[in-house]
C-alpha cells in the first residue's frame, strides 16, 4: 500500500543530485509536489520536463536545480519563464546547464526509457542547430534502407512525479484528458510518485483508460488541487489568470522571492498554500 503524505513521499524518495521528471503537458502538472521539493530545499537536481512551465520556473528560481533537460521553456501563451531565463542568461540563483531538445525528441527519449532501449529514433531535428549545441542528438544508419535517422538517448529518471485524477485504495492510478508523455515518463523511471485529486473505492476505468497499476507506483499522495495553477479535468480548469499574473510576479527577483517565501516556505503544505492565497484575496 503506497499511500502516504506528500511530505513523506518527497522526504523518502527525492534526494539531492537526482534526475527528477515532474511531467504533465499543460494538464495535470504536479505543482504541489514541486513546491514540496522547494520546501524541503532539495538541491543540484537534474530537472527533466518537456515544458518547464511555471513549476520549473519556481523550482529553478528557488535554486533546486543545476541541470535542465527540456524542449520548450516559456510561460505558455504569455511569454518568458523569467526565472529559468535568468538562470540560463545570468546564472542566478545558480548556474543551470541545459540539455535542449524538440518535443518529438523528448517524447522519443521517454518511449525508449520506458522500453529500456538505449535510444529513441525519429526523423527529427532536420536542418536545425540543436544537434550542434546538444551532442546527445546523434544519428544512425537504418540497417534496412540505409537512411540516416536521428537518435536521442533514452531518458530514465531516478524519480518521475505525476499528478492524476484518482487512485483506488490499492494505489492503482487513473489519468484522463491530455496525458502528454506521462505514461512513458512514469514507466521509464526507477521510482514513481503520484499525487491525486481523490482516493476512490473503485476506479471504474474504461477498458483502454490510462492506468498505472499499484505495483509500478512507489508512492501515492492525496493532494486535492495539487495541479493548480494547471488543471485537473473533471475537477477544476486551468487558472489562466494566474499564468498571466505570474509574468509580473516572476519578472523581478525580489518579488519572486517574496512570493516564494509567503506561499511556499511559510506554509506547511499545499492546503495551507491555497488558504494563504485565499486569505490574501486571491479568488480561488
Amino acid at each position: 500500500m503506497p499511500l502516504m503524505t506528500l511530505r513523506d513521499a518527497i522526504r523518502d524518495h527525492v534526494h539531492d543530485g537526482e534526475t527528477v521528471a515532474l511531467e504533465g503537458f499543460t494538464h495535470l502538472i504536479p505543482f504541489a509536489a514541486g513546491q514540496e521539493i522547494i520546501r524541503q530545499r532539495r538541491q543540484n537536481l537534474h530537472l527533466v520536463r518537456m515544458t518547464p512551465d511555471l513549476i520549473y520556473d519556481q523550482m529553478v528560481g528557488a535554486g533546486c536545480a543545476n541541470r535542465l533537460t527540456f524542449s520548450w521553456g516559456g510561460n505558455p501563451g504569455v511569454g518568458s519563464a523569467h526565472r529559468v531565463r535568468e538562470a540560463i542568461e545570468k546564472g542566478w540563483p545558480t548556474p543551470l546547464e541545459i540539455h535542449e531538445h524538440s518535443h518529438a525528441g523528448m517524447a522519443a527519449a521517454y518511449v525508449a526509457g520506458a522500453s529500456r532501449l538505449p535510444f529513441g529514433v525519429l526523423r527529427g531535428y532536420f536542418g536545425t542547430d540543436l544537434p550542434e549545441v546538444n551532442p546527445q542528438i546523434r544519428s544512425i544508419q537504418c540497417p534496412y534502407t540505409g537512411e540516416q535517422l536521428t537518435t536521442v538517448p533514452a531518458m530514465n529518471p531516478d524519480v518521475t512525479i505525476l499528478h492524476a485524477q484518482k487512485a483506488d485504495g490499492e494505489g492503482n492510478v487513473l489519468l484522463s484528458g491530455i496525458i502528454g508523455a506521462q505514461k512513458e515518463a512514469a514507466l521509464a523511471a526507477r521510482k514513481l510518485i503520484i499525487t491525486v485529486e481523490e482516493i476512490v473505492e473503485r476506479l471504474d476505468t474504461p477498458m483502454n483508460g490510462v492506468v498505472l497499476p499499484a505495483w509500478v507506483v512507489t508512492a501515492v499522495a492525496c493532494v486535492p488541487g495539487g495541479a493548480w495553477p494547471s488543471y485537473a479535468r473533471g475537477y477544476y480548469s486551468r487558472d489562466n489568470a494566474f499564468y498571466i499574473a505570474w509574468d509580473d510576479i516572476s519578472r523581478d527577483r525580489a518579488r519572486f522571492l517574496q512570493w516564494l517565501d509567503r506561499y511556499v516556505y511559510s506554509t506547511v503544505d499545499h492546503a495551507q498554500c491555497v488558504q494563504t492565497l485565499r486569505a490574501d484575496g486571491y479568488d480561488l
Binding site: H103, A104, A107, L122
Partner: peptide, 29 residues
Amino acid sequence: LPLSIGDGELADTAVCVVPLPEIFSYWLQ
C-alpha cells in the same frame, strides 16, 4: 482560443485526445 497549447477547452471539444509520443510519430511524422 486556448491560452496554452493544452487548455481543457481543446480536449473537451476534440474528436479524440492521444498521447504526445503518438501525436508526433503516428500523426505528424
